[in-house]
Simulated assay, not measured.
Amino acid sequence: MARTFPFTAIAGQDEMKLALVIAAVDPAIGGVLITGDRGTGKSTAVRGLAAVLPAIRSVTGCPYRCGPEDPADGCPHCSEHFPKGLRRPLLLEPVRVVDLPLAATEDRVLGSLDIEQALVHGRKRFEPGLLARAHRGFLYIDEVNLLEDHIVDLLLDVAASGENIVEREGLSIRHRSRFVLVGSGNPEEGDLRPQLLDRFGLSVEVTSPDDIDIRIEAVKRREAFDNDPDAFLASVAREEVRLSRRIAQGRGRLATVDVSDMIRRAIAALCMKLGTDGLRGELTLIRAARAVAALEGAASVAPTHLRQVAPLALRHRLRRNPMDEAGSRLRVERAVAEAWAA
Score class of each variant (00 low, 15 high):
Val52Tyr: 00
Glu69Gly: 07
Ile56Val: 14
Arg65Ala: 14
Ala55Asp: 14
Glu69Pro: 02
Pro54Trp: 05
Arg65Cys: 15
Ala51Ser: 15
Val52Gly: 02
Cys66Arg: 01
Val46Asn: 00
Gly39Tyr: 10
Cys66Phe: 01
Pro63Lys: 10
Pro54Arg: 11
Gly41Glu: 12
Ala50Glu: 06
Gly36Trp: 02
Ala51Phe: 02
Gly36Ala: 04
Gly48Gln: 09
Ile34Met: 15
Gly61Leu: 08
Ala45Glu: 04
Ile34Tyr: 03
Ile56Leu: 14
Ala50Leu: 09
Pro54Lys: 08
Ile34Val: 15
Glu69Cys: 01
Leu53Tyr: 11
Gly39Phe: 06
Arg38Phe: 05
Val46Arg: 00
Gly39Asp: 12
Cys66His: 00
Ile56Arg: 13
Tyr64Ala: 08
Ala45Leu: 07
Cys62Met: 07
Ile56Gly: 07
Gly41His: 08
Ala55Cys: 03
Ile56Asp: 02
Gly61Asp: 10
Ala45Phe: 03
Thr40Pro: 03
Val59Ala: 15
Ser43His: 00
Thr44Gln: 08
Ala55Tyr: 04
Leu53Pro: 09
Ile34Gln: 02
Pro54Glu: 11
Val46Ala: 05
Cys66Glu: 04
Pro63Asp: 13
Ser58Gln: 12
Gly41Ser: 06
Asp37Trp: 04
Gly67Ser: 11
Ala51Lys: 13
Thr40Val: 15
Tyr64Cys: 04
Tyr64Asp: 11
Ile56Lys: 11
Gly41Val: 11
Gly48Ala: 13
Leu53Gly: 08
Gly39Pro: 03
Cys62Asn: 10
Pro68Lys: 07
Pro54Phe: 08
Val59Gln: 00
Thr40Phe: 06
Arg47Ser: 08
Ile56Pro: 02
Thr40Gln: 08
Leu49Cys: 07
Leu49His: 01
Arg38Gly: 12
Arg38Ser: 12
Gly41Ile: 08
Thr40Leu: 05
Arg65Pro: 04
Cys66Leu: 09
Ser43Trp: 00
Thr60Phe: 06
Thr40Ile: 13
Ala50Lys: 05
Pro63Gln: 13
Ala50Asn: 06
Pro68Asn: 10
Val59Cys: 11
Ala55Trp: 07
Val52His: 01
Leu49Tyr: 01
Cys66Gly: 05
Ala51His: 14
Tyr64Phe: 15
Ser58Trp: 00
Thr35Ser: 11
Leu53Arg: 09
Gly39Glu: 11
Val52Cys: 04
Ala51Gly: 15
Cys62Glu: 12
Thr60Ser: 09
Pro54His: 07
Thr60Cys: 03
Val52Ile: 14
Leu49Asp: 00
Ala45Thr: 10
Val52Phe: 02
Gly36Thr: 05
Lys42Asn: 11
Glu69Ile: 05
Pro54Cys: 09
Arg47Asn: 15
Arg38Met: 09
Arg57Val: 02
Leu53Ala: 08
